Simulated assay, not measured.
Amino acid sequence: MRIGELAVRAGTTPRALRYYEARGLLPARRAGNGHRTYDEGDLKLLRQIRTLRDSGFDLEETRPFVECLRAGHPEGDSCPASLVVYRRKLDELDALIEELGAVRAKVGAQLARAEEARDVLAADAGVPGGPEPVCELGGRRR
């Protein structure tokens, strides 16, 4: 198949395919007329790349999976190098989750503090729901 058909079937663009070819992820086979030609194996490589990219892997992280498929394994994640990338990605995700948990706790504490301060102001003003908002530029909102 030619580059346009492969791009459509893989859900990408010919430009992306040429980029993958330049990066050594997609084989560069040419027909006698100079057109790029691809087969079902190339489509499988692209689907593997797309699945990994959709899961947050950068393009270089897909290389071991592509090489595993090229080596004849039915799945791109059955080789030792692919497993190393999976483990590294999980460690990265765990660190991000931990970082986001800390940020969430901080924002939650700030919200609780702000609500408490609002409630104190409301009680001091004797106004249910809090005092009337004051514009930072000096006047009351209307």
Rank of each mutant, 00 (worst) to 15 (best):
I3V: 13
E5I: 02
L6S: 01
V8P: 04
R9Q: 13
G11E: 02
G11W: 04
T13D: 07
T13N: 08
R15F: 12
R15W: 09
A16C: 06
L17D: 03
R18K: 13
Y19F: 11
Y20W: 06
E21Q: 13
E21N: 08
A22D: 15
G24Y: 01
G24F: 02
L25W: 03
L25I: 06
L26G: 02
L26V: 01
R30W: 00
R30H: 00
A31S: 14
G32P: 02
G32T: 02
N33C: 01
G34Q: 13
G34D: 12
H35V: 04
T37H: 10
Y38S: 00
Y38C: 00
Y38Q: 00
Y38F: 07
Y38P: 00
D39L: 00
D39V: 02
E40G: 05
D42C: 00
D42W: 00
L43D: 01
L45Y: 03
L45E: 04
L46P: 00
L46K: 00
R47D: 01
I49H: 02
I49W: 01
T51E: 09
T51I: 06
T51M: 08
T51R: 11
L52N: 05
L52G: 05
R53G: 11
D54Y: 06
S55M: 14
G56F: 10
G56Q: 11
G56H: 10
F57E: 09
E60T: 14
E60Y: 11
E61T: 09
E61Y: 10
T62Y: 02
T62N: 02
T62K: 03
T62C: 10
R63N: 04
F65N: 07
V66Y: 01
E67N: 13
E67I: 00
E67S: 03
C68A: 08
C68V: 04
L69A: 04
R70V: 01
R70E: 01
R70G: 00
A71F: 03
G72K: 05
G72R: 05
P74Y: 03
E75L: 05
D77W: 04
S78P: 02
L83S: 09
V85Y: 05
V85D: 05
Y86D: 04
R87K: 12
R87W: 07
L90W: 12
L90G: 06
E92Q: 15
L93D: 10
D94N: 14
D94Q: 15
D94I: 11
A95P: 10
E99H: 15
G101Q: 15
G101W: 13
V103G: 09
A105N: 15
A105T: 15
K106V: 07
K106M: 11
V107Q: 10
A109S: 08
L111M: 15
A112M: 10
R113E: 13
R113P: 03
R113D: 11
A114Q: 14
A114D: 12
A114F: 14
R118S: 10
R118V: 07
D119G: 11
D119T: 13
D119K: 14
V120Q: 15
V120L: 14
L121D: 08
A122E: 03
A122K: 01
A122R: 04
A122M: 01
A123H: 12
A123R: 14
A123L: 13
A123V: 07
A125L: 09
A125I: 08
G126Y: 09
G129P: 06
G130E: 07
P131I: 08
P133V: 02
P133T: 07
P133Q: 06
